[in-house]
Write a protein that binds this DNA or RNA. Structure first.
Lengths: 209, 209
DNA sequence: TGCAGTCTGTGAAGTTTGTCACGAATTAGG
DNA sequence: CCTAATTCGTGACAAACTTCACAGACTGCA
């Protein structure tokens, strides 16, 4: 039974949560869909409609209580718990991801890092020791992480994805420039900065307005 | 006059180009929309429709010539030229971006890096020397870069975006966790790994299928 | 208490995006 | 040359998504 909530809506939830966090930090108690729309470059109707998929969180004549709505959203997205993440690929990108401080505050903890390069295995990056790819299945069985970050070259992506999927991982954040094939029930999001730039240049190309 | 080609189509073009590059590397001459669809997890009809917005590149009974279609797509996206990029924010993330080897092969060259932290200004990262943010306008005037990568903390994002926009930049790749406001005619793409993970956990939350 | 003003939640309408299915072009093999 | 097998390009159709617009709920003030 796949839920009937559009995926585009799910993709917007993190943005809503982020903006609400900002409002909470600035001590704002209540926010209207109008105001949220301004902050998100979206429309009030869109925001109300999106939220209505999950329940009724606002109050007519007032708006939404910031802390309440934020808690609800975090609940909906499953963020009221910690998530364990493994990293595969400890090259430059992988190292940057390991030392990046943005994941942990949101409850995503990298608990193990793997690489196929034997000269990396055993070295320390941040607080982790790089493990051999061969140990992945065993380590996953022990720590039961739910997510994997893949930061390997494009040509290695599919085999790495296959490996983590076989180990039981159901969510993958893929930095490799490759569309990985995954079975039903496994979720992949691609991070593609180069593609993002390329889709910008399309609009800049006819130079002028 | 905004073009009437859907933005979703434009966002798919880089993926098409990437897959075609892979096929070209493997020496394949011709590819059908069926095959492309398999590789992209898309449908043949979608691909034919997308391509038809730009012209007629295929041949009935055969398919698309890989090298020809790739060249056409690169032309369409404006990739048959080099693009100059500036980086703002030379923290851990910024440094990783500077040393990342994925941009240059696609024609995106980082020509200058800026940071507001005086202790970073003057230091070398990769082949660049970090400049003070105050020099940005002047440097942009000289080098005429078309794109900017923003890799600063969320709270600094908007002011940095304002600055690069004022300097004349029309395309921004934003790594900061903040939805920047930009005037008409400026294009922003956000890179949001944390948000991507959060939209995955939504689906994993009801643990089971 | 009553009234004017605000703002949500939601069916219905409208728009955008994706799929279907078929004519026409091309190839390959007698 | 003729026929069977492919495959594109595209208008018509369907599905998905967004916007509209309004009833109903709440607030604040006199």
């Amino acid at each position: 039974m796949t839920s009937n909530i559009p995926e585009v809506v799910i993709l917007r939830l993190p943005l809503y949560a982020r903006v609400l966090r900002g409002l909470a930090d600035r001590g704002e108690d209540v926010v209207s869909s109008q105001r949220l729309g301004d902050l998100l470059h979206s429309t009030p109707a869109q925001i109300r409609k999106d939220l209505s998929y999950f329940g009724r969180f606002g109050k007519q004549g007032r708006g939404y209580r910031v802390d309440h709505l934020l808690r609800e959203l975090r609940q909906i997205m499953g963020l009221e718990r910690q998530w364990s993440v493994i990293l595969v690929g400890v090259g430059q990108l992988g190292k940057a991801i390991l030392t990046y401080g943005g994941f942990a505050p949101q409850g995503f903890h990298v608990v193990a890092a793997f690489d196929s390069d034997q000269s990396l295995v055993g070295t320390s990056v941040g607080s982790l020791t790089v493990q051999a790819s061969g140990e992945l299945a065993e380590t996953v069985k022990q720590h039961q992480p739910q997510l994997a970050i893949v930061a390997v070259p494009g040509h290695a992506c599919q085999s790495v994805v296959d490996m983590v999927v076989r180990a039981g991982i159901k969510g993958i954040l893929n930095y490799a420039p490759h569309q990985a094939q995954v079975p039903e029930g496994v979720w992949v999001r691609d991070i593609d900065p180069v593609g993002a730039l390329q889709s910008i240049t399309y609009y800049l190309k006819p130079n002028g307005s």
